[in-house]
Design a protein around this nucleic acid. Sequence first.
DNA 1: GGCGTGACTATAC
DNA 2: GGTATAGCCACGC
Length: 116
Amino acid sequence: MNADTTAAARTAIERTVAAIRPGTVASYGEVARRAGLPRRARLVGRVLREAPESVPLPWHRVLRADRRLAFPEGSDAYVEQQRRLAAEGVELVGGRVPERYFNVDDDLDAALWGPE
DNA sequence: GGCGTGACTATAC
DNA sequence: GGTATAGCCACGC
């Protein structure tokens, strides 16, 4: 497992992001950790940026650890993400997502890594 | 192979 | 609550 690690990491990240339940959000670090890739938060952002639209991914459910969006406020991407979140009932308060929306469901790990 | 950069995070002040 | 700094790792030049 050498050069494949990054490709495998990308797959794991995509699967983890896709597993985030609608109406909830998770931080980059959280996604990385659940994907079995601790300290790879930046890689998560890279994967989402590189991800083609042919692979629909709920990237809008991923935010920074400070509960703010990863984009500058007012940017197109920021507005788009905010719009998608609002469509799922997740609203930004003061530019931040309330902590209660963060996905802390333990069942998510089981749904991912339990039944292989 | 060094160096800067980034959809990040934790810690310190 | 905020800014500053260091650590982190993959990528491109």
